[in-house]
């Protein structure tokens, strides 16, 4: 039952790299930084069934930073939602795996995202509906630290805490980078933890690149009542492969040729 999450995360990282390299370039940085939380969710904490992807009362995940699609697709393929070979169709004309998450194209994707700031509100709506239906689902949502500059994120935050949506667990992928550079240089968000606390959230701050820590923290958040939850994931953009990590903001979207692919996979295997 309890899967080795470190091994699973490693496999998902490899699939993510293969997926992006199949088209030569893509959003590797923000994909790699969330692999560990995706692993904790799909391999341990979420109430889901890959054989019955639309199961009533299932937990849902909104990846509000929709450009991390490749990591989501890799995770879903790893869990058997669809064949791993399909990962090689990323971004090809007619694919089911477009650069940004699309609930109408990809089996297992719960929300269409890609215009930053929008997904979080949709997660709040799902959490509200789950309360009405009393289906005991947990709604998860991952936002980016650059994405947090969108005003809509804070509209959603206010509303979620006003409605006491304790079935909502948010993750902030705090990799300190956005497209143009470091978030602190582009448009500093200040103290995230204090902002989320001030918005009425129960806030945790952890090493987001440790799948076991992600798992334990999710477990804690699930049993705590009365407030929505924010788990700040302190992560590294491109996490897991030195070449991507060292690229800093250039890892946001970068080319992955065959040589880099082979080296990255070897590096992950050599751990």
């Amino acid at each position: 039952m309890s899967e080795n999450l470190k091994c699973a995360a490693k496999e998902i990282r490899k699939l993510t790299i293969n997926c992006i390299s199949s088209i030569g370039a893509g959003h590797i940085g923000g994909s790699m930084s969330i692999v560990d939380v995706l692993t904790a969710l799909y391999c341990s904490e979420m109430n889901i069934d890959p054989q019955d992807p639309k199961k009533e009362g299932r937990d849902r995940l909104v990846v509000s930073k929709g450009h991390a699609g490749p990591a989501v697709y890799a995770t879903l393929a790893y869990k058997g939602y669809f064949d791993k070979d399909e990962l090689m169709t990323l971004n090809r004309y007619g694919t089911n795996l477009p650069s940004h998450c699309d609930m109408n194209k990809t089996i297992g994707v719960d929300m269409t995202t890609g215009s930053l700031g929008q997904g979080i509100s949709c997660a709040v709506g799902m959490a509200l509906a789950s309360k009405i239906k009393q289906d005991n689902a947990t709604i998860y949502c991952i936002i980016g630290d650059g994405e947090s500059q969108e005003g809509q994120v804070w509209e959603a935050a206010m509303f979620a805490s006003h409605k006491k949506l304790d079935n909502l667990i948010l993750f902030l992928d705090k990799n300190n980078l956005q497209l143009d550079g470091y978030t602190k240089d582009v448009a500093d968000c200040g103290n995230d933890a204090l902002k989320w606390i001030a918005n009425g959230f129960e806030v945790y701050s952890i090493n987001g690149n440790d799948p076991y820590l992600c798992k334990e923290t999710i477990k804690k958040a699930k049993v705590s009542n009365g407030k929505p939850h924010m788990i700040i994931l302190n992560t590294v953009k491109g996490s897991g492969v030195k070449y991507f990590e060292d690229a800093k903001e250039n890892s946001h979207s970068m080319p992955i040729n065959e040589e880099i692919r082979v080296k990255s996979i070897a590096e992950l295997d050599g751990e």
Binding site: L116, G146, E147, Q149, E150, Q178, L179, D180, V186, A187
Partner: peptide, 24 residues
């Protein structure tokens, strides 16, 4: 937050007072 893909990033050094990255 798209000054690099849009090619305007280079203006930031030369005109620090008249270039603004609003973030996302």
């Amino acid at each position: 937050d798209l000054s690099k893909p849009n090619g305007t990033a280079k203006l930031y050094e030369k005109y620090p007072k008249r270039t603004f990255n609003a973030g996302i």
